[in-house]
């Protein structure tokens, strides 16, 4: 029922300023796994919209057997009405059975819009997808900040769609396989129908400082228990000493102890999996734990012996975050 055409497992690859977002590779790896679980394997296809993109062969390396490029001046910067019109036209023509999209800012906007156009279901910010015994895609979706996980299916409409959070699938691995066939789709007919209700003017990239959270092997994270902007400097200093990245919880963003909410870890922030995660003054609200649960070694420091973070930790220290941070920094500096 869900496969009424040529089928295919599609990944909408994301590019920003011509650079492919690595979540696209994570999704392609997953698409290859889904292919093996289907009763009859379907091709893995990457679709990429933009003005152009560097390193298309990377899409091939991580699992794309076919790449559909949709390149035009008008598509250089993400503009939701144009992107959705192009994808709608492509999907209606080629009828994939599954469409996977990264749950990035762009993907979280594009996917539901596309679902509404196609009157099909979209499972949002999934932590995993698989194929069940009925040959249907099952998406595992967190709710209540990750306290509950639920299976979501889309049995009666096509395609079956899901967005997946960057980082939740783990580091993508290159696959040994032949180079993908690249086909270009001409969007001019679709773009001519643009009603001009929305216009992308410019994209502004913000300079990233320090080690990105997604790539860090060590993360030093702090929460409300750090107590003040002054104390926050200790978190930053320890991260610097350990060559790690700085992470935080929602209250720290609200208090503006950090400059960017890009440092927030949790359901509505980043999903991370460093080798070592140090949590200082973090109580362990469900939505935070959901973002760091895949870390290697978890070390936590909290005044409250009953804080939920301890349950999710390998090494527990009941104590004042500032005191331990100060002593640890002093000890490392020697």
């Amino acid at each position: 029922m869900t496969t009424n055409g040529a089928g295919g497992i599609w990944v909408v690859a994301e590019q920003v300023a011509g650079r492919i977002n690595s979540v696209s590779y994570e999704l392609l790896n997953k698409a290859q796994q889904l292919k093996n679980q289907l009763q009859k394997p379907e091709p893995v296809v990457a679709v990429i919209l933009g003005k152009g993109a560097e390193g298309l062969e990377q899409l091939s390396n991580y699992g794309a057997e076919e790449i559909i490029t949709v390149f035009a001046e008008e598509l250089e910067i993400y503009q939701n009405d144009l992107y959705v019109a192009v994808l709608q036209a492509l999907i209606e023509e080629k009828k994939p059975s599954i469409v996977l999209i990264g749950a990035t800012a762009i993907g979280q906007d594009l996917a539901p819009m596309l679902g509404a156009r196609l009157k099909t279901g979209v499972a949002a910010h999934c932590v995993d997808v698989r194929i069940n015994e009925n040959n249907q895609m099952v998406a595992v979706v967190p709710a209540f900040g990750g306290k509950v996980l639920g299976d979501i299916l889309c049995p009666n409409t096509s395609p079956q769609m899901a967005t997946l959070k960057p980082g939740v699938l783990g580091k993508p691995v290159p696959l040994e396989k032949p180079a993908a066939v690249v086909t270009a789709f001409d969007p001019s007919a679709v773009l001519q129908e643009d009603q001009g209700r929305i216009k992308a003017l410019e994209i502004v990239r913000e300079e990233q400082t320090g080690v990105p959270l997604e790539e860090a092997e060590v993360i030093v994270a702090g929460g409300w228990g750090i107590g003040s902007r002054e104390n926050w400097d200790l978190v930053e200093e320890l991260a610097r000493l350990l060559g790690g990245a700085v992470g935080c919880t929602r209250p720290v963003v609200d208090e503006q102890w950090v400059q960017s909410e890009q440092q927030m870890i949790g359901t509505s922030g980043k999903s991370v999996r460093p080798k070592v995660y140090l949590a200082f003054g973090i109580s362990g609200a469900t939505h935070h734990l959901c973002g760091m649960k895949d870390s290697g070694l978890v070390i936590s420091v909290n005044k409250d012996a009953t804080a939920p973070i301890f349950e999710a930790s390998d090494v527990r220290i009941v104590g004042d975050a500032r005191t331990i941070l100060t002593a640890l920094i002093k000890r490392i500096k020697g």
Binding site: G115, K119, T120, G121, V122, A123, V138, G146, K147, V148, L149, G150, D151, I152, L153, C154, P155, N156, T157, L289, K293, V298, F310, E311, A312, S313, D314, V315, R316, I317, V318
Partner: peptide, 22 residues
Amino acid sequence: GSPTKAGDIFTPSLARKGQQLT
């Protein structure tokens, strides 16, 4: 009117066997 249907639900365990430093 909902194209998505809910299947099984469960609560993932985040518990780790921890040691306390004292």
